[in-house]
Design a protein around this nucleic acid. Structure first.
Length: 511
RNA sequence: GGCCCGUUCGUCUAGGGGUUAGGACGCAUCCCUUUCACGGAUGAAACACGGGUUCGAUUCCCGUACGGGCUACCA
């Protein structure tokens, strides 16, 4: 059997879109599943749209997600270079070969010429001008001009090389996801292969590289399906039809609501990331934060992304990268576009956050606690994590909550104070604060017991005191378990906060 | 407009000629709880439409509608 070799071939024209990340993931999973090679090839043939930082961004993103390439610009490999701008001679040679074989031709039409042709066909009622078998003899190219004229023009004018698409031919393509796709060559146009600046177009470079790099499967977004027949034709033209890779065109990621595919704007509109890492817009200088900065764990993003368009056919939803590799197959990729479901991503993140050990949060938590003079000696980490983890989907959620608890409660929730504060509550609070002050290191269980028996002794219902205790300790009406909060704060601070609050409450309510 | 691709709960999807059409997210209700969450339980919620084929179609075929992509010397 042929070696499995797949490639992710982004072009460095901006941030890596999350859809691109999914394409990379599927390529990676497919390669690893079948013991093949995952290759990253940089398709930087558009000089106008080239963005300097983009290539590095692609590597950083994939590295963050653990999608490491077997062959790439960074890593090298038997088919280097893996950057198209360093392979220009190869494309040029192949383009000229095609001209020689009669499969391509030189075209001298200027932008204005083409514009005119388009105008004219619109007037004639044809909606879109096509440069093809029907029109090419009307244009300025090496098919319509005499050899002398061609030589002359080649000397003095920029020109492109175009594919000579046959007039009447059925182009067939068996897509792994969509089945047979048939297109008549009369509806295709003579795509430019080599641009006038000497750069290849995607079509040429892609086919040449996939062939030379022995790519076995082309797994890419559905936006490429319309040009796939051109690529098939190119394989035929080069005489590589027997080495042609298998194609799998992935369904697109759609906007969460409304029409169209997911875009940068959607993220900003709905307040969720669409980039893996934060990206600084080259034109505006605006920083758009990414999944990583928003607190998504890489394993959660991977798991989530895997399910946007693929499913294992079982009811299992939580998959490690290893399990994904094991379970992945092209056959189980859906055909229809997928609306981007950020809720599901959050749910995955919540799950994966719960799996993290306490030390994972140590640094972030200590940064919040230290300015508040808490947790200096580092021994209460587990208790702090315990307090907030299960309620959180992101580390930031945990920190927000911890910050609220760590901050001295100077402004009690007035609603609660008005409705809950009374003489009984006051008595209970005074008694409990005295008890708390006796010791520093209480456990939540001990406190619970002490509290309960004290309230019993005083003949006060615990429910009357508890909301006020929360107010006294944190200033808030809602939050995590109270006794655990007291444990984590320690006896001294807890008692101090309560006495402090007692005074404040009196001042505010007269009780 | 032309060409190509698609269409099962709001969303991601399973299924497939005869099923109570299954799961997950989200939503609602209940339980747990001082509270907000977490967790647990329950519930509402879908085969786009019209023709065939068939004893029978959500499933196969054809149309229509709708959605998407492409239609550049962008990828």
């Amino acid at each position: 059997m042929k070696e499995i070799r797949v490639r992710f071939a982004p072009s460095p024209t901006g941030s890596l879109h999350i859809g691109g990340v999914r394409t990379a993931l599927y390529n990676y999973l497919f390669a690893k599943k079948l013991n093949g090679k995952f290759i990253i090839r940089i398709e930087d043939t558009d000089q106008n749209r080239y963005v300097d930082k983009a290539e590095e961004y692609i590597y950083d993103s994939l590295r963050w997600l653990g999608l490491e390439a077997d062959e790439s610009v960074e890593k090298g490999g038997p088919f280097a270079p893996y950057k198209q701008s360093e392979r220009l001679d190869i494309y040029k040679k192949h383009a000229y070969d095609l001209v020689e074989k009669g499969w391509a031709y030189f075209a001298f039409d200027t932008a204005e010429d083409l514009e005119q042709a388009r105008e004219k066909s619109k007037e004639g009622g044809v909606s879109t001008f096509q440069y093809n078998a029907a029109t090419r003899m009307l244009m300025k190219n090496s098919l319509s001009l005499s050899p002398d004229e061609v030589e002359q023009l080649k000397q003095n004018q920029p020109f492109v090389i175009r594919l000579k698409v046959p007039k009447k031919e059925e182009i067939r393509l068996n897509d792994l996801i969509r089945g047979w796709v048939m297109v008549h060559s009369s509806t295709m146009d003579d795509k430019v292969l080599l641009k006038s600046d000497g750069m290849p177009t995607y079509h040429l470079a892609n086919v040449v590289d996939d062939y030379l790099m022995k790519i076995s499967h082309v797994i890419r977004g559905e936006e490429w399906l319309p040009s796939a027949p051109t690529h098939v034709l190119l394989y035929q033209a080069f005489g590589w039809q027997n080495e042609m890779p298998l194609f799998a065109h992935l369904p697109l990621l759609l906007k969460p609501e409304g029409d169209g595919k997911l875009s940068k704007r959607d993220g900003m509109l709905h307040g969720f990331p669409v980039f893996p890492l934060s990206w600084t817009d080259t034109e505006t200088g605006n920083v758009i934060s990414g999944f990583r900065e928003e607190g998504y764990l890489p394993e959660a993003l991977i798991n989530f992304l895997a399910f946007q368009g693929w499913n294992p056919g079982t009811e299992q939803e939580i998959f490690s990268i290893w399990e994904l590799i094991e379970a992945f197959s092209l056959e189980r990729i859906g055909k229809s576009g997928t609306r981007f479901d950020i809720q599901k991503a959050k749910w995955f993140n919540h799950y994966y956050l719960q799996q993290k050990p306490d030390v994972f949060f140590a640094e972030a938590i200590s940064k919040v606690l230290e300015p508040c003079g808490l947790w200096k000696e580092g021994k209460k980490l587990g208790a702090w994590v315990n307090l907030v983890k299960s309620r959180s989907s992101f580390v930031a959620d945990m920190l927000t909550e911890i910050r609220q608890i760590a901050t001295w409660p100077v402004a009690p929730d007035e609603e609660t104070l008005k409705s809950k504060w009374n003489e009984d509550a006051k008595r209970g609070l005074i008694a409990f604060s005295d008890l708390l002050a006796e010791r520093e290191d209480w456990s939540a269980e001990e406190l619970k017991f002490v509290f309960q028996s004290e309230m019993e002794k005083l003949g006060i219902k615990p429910g009357k005191v508890l909301p006020n205790l929360r107010m006294a300790l944190t200033g808030k009406a809602a939050g995590p378990d109270l006794m655990t909060i007291a444990e984590v704060l320690g006896g001294t601070i807890s008692a101090q906060r309560m006495r402090d609050s007692l005074q404040r409450f009196s001042l505010l309510t007269g009780i």
